[in-house]
Amino acid sequence: MDWVNAIVQGILIGGLYALFAAGLSLIFGVMRLVNIAHGDFIIAAAYLAYVVISATGLHPLLSLVFVVPVAAAAGYVLQATILNRTLGDDLLPPLLVTFGLSVILQNGLLEIFTADSRKLDAGLLDIQTVSVLPGVSVGYMPVLMFMTAVLVIAGLQYIFYRTALGRAFRATSDDGEIAQLMGLDNRKVFAAAMALSFAVIAIAGVFLAVRANFDPFMGPARLIFGFEAVIIGGLGNLWGTLAGGVILGVAQAIGAQIDPGWQLLAGHIAFLVVLAVKPRGLFPRIEG
């Protein structure tokens, strides 16, 4: 039963990894930008929630009402003021600027909040469990987290393929020059995409902070988990990203079951195996 239990937990944690991945995948899809500071922004969102909760006493999930719009606004401003200036044929500027942001964020959070780890308390949600199989029970929180991931991805999918904003994202990604002739301002489209990515970052940050302890230096590992989920699932496929997150979560759970030291290693190895065998991911988007 230990194994079944571990795998079920791994699947549920895969939802969190999908949340890490979705924002990353979204902005790569729209503007070919890889935000090296993605994970650090997730941690920053967790700290923002921490501050909001400390000040107001809100439940962590309710703090999302505040954290999500603030994060989205921050993403919009970041893109409009800094990142838009780095976009072009050269890959180096956006990578190095976001790398610099990553270092600034980690050390800034360290300055403000110290290296002590923190956790958000979700009250009863943290403790209560539900039995899914004989001998296998899961916590409310991981289930809620997984359901949120499914909803977020369904929402992104809807925005991408059913709304004017999504049409603008896809058109700008296809051909930025012609998209301008449709009256679309590339810079605003990119800023909107970054805002959306940051909204997802905020959700991911709060769930991460409810699930486990966090500290200022946890960002890069979250970036890597998100990235691995994107590549395993297949570039440009949001539902594939969820599958990638689940595969990563299960691989880590199996690794941890063998030996605690193998938890992260097993996840990375699963990623490298997929990269070696199916470099376009398990569910690549079919090009029309």
Binding site: L95, I224, F227, I231, L275
Partner: peptide, 20 residues
């Protein structure tokens, strides 16, 4: 096998695998 920007993070994963 990873292009451009994703190559960067891929190399980071490899370094993590070495560390672990």
């Amino acid at each position: 096998r990873l292009n451009g920007a994703y190559f960067a993070i891929g190399t980071w994963v490899v370094a993590e695998v070495f560390r672990l």
